[in-house]
Amino acid sequence: MAVLVIADHDNATLKDNTHKVVTAAQAIGGDVDVLVAGTNVGPVAAEAAKIAGVRKVLTAESPELGQGLAEAVADLVVGLASGYDYILTPATSQGKNFSPRIAAKLDVAQISDVTEVVSGDTFTHPIYAGNAMETVQSADAKKVLTVRPTAFKAAGEGGSAKIESVSVPAAPAKTHFVDQKIVKSARPELGAAKIVVSGGRAMGSAEEFQKVIEPLADKLGAAVGASRAAVDAGYAPNDYQVGQTGKVVAPELYVAIGISGAIQHLAGMKDSKVIVAINKDPDAPIFQVADYGLVADYKAAVPELMDALTAAGK
């Protein structure tokens, strides 16, 4: 039995999501291989080879793979599929883009956002914005899964898998990359950060968001998140959105400022270890999930919190 894990990376560094999906693969059992598809992936493959318990690392290189075009990734993986019983991908926006295409080409179901491996054919995943957990048993010969990284611990290092390059099918003819605007940030990545500070509609403007949320995040060494309302209003970029239809995070500490706690937002952060809410409305639903709630106007509370953190040596 063999499991193929499709690595999450940006053509420069390997993302921790990969280590987490390897853990899910190990829970299934069998040989675990990691596919690194992109451009100039040598350094990324070398990192993947160090993940404990990996049998081998496959590399595939082409411009279209580097651009992450779903058609290119799907054609490549479908070509490799005969050697594997399971194909696992992190449930990032990139993974969600190509994985269903692989499943359909193989004529199998995809099980989305797996949070628990119950057995080799049975998996649990959230539905209805995480208000229900569904356990399904698959009758397909091959199983294609996207895995929610926050639900698994990262596999350790210490491996020394061999690295093999594989040939790449013809480039997709009907899809063309035009450009991309990727925001580079010195802050930790939202999905992997230990602390996340998120702002909501209460911020009222992008300037206010930057003035209130970002310094607090920097003081805590945190990533910055936002509610959909804050993103829609243009206070924060789209990839900050936490929730059912944004990113799912599960940091040690999640600080929600001026966020009401709609079910769609909770779906993205309710598995955080400790939740703090600052909201002036004592009845805001966010307080039903918060470990520590501060009923206050953020305009006064955040500066006080900054001072209290300084006093505490932060």
């Binding site: 229900a132 957990m133 399904v136 309710k270 470990d291 501060l294 006080e304 209290a308």
Partner: peptide
Amino acid sequence: LKVVKVTEPAKRQAGIKVETA
């Protein structure tokens, strides 16, 4: 796929209100 079961997610306990930062 066969649905084995559909269950409620683990519930979070509401915590405490603090007075100051």
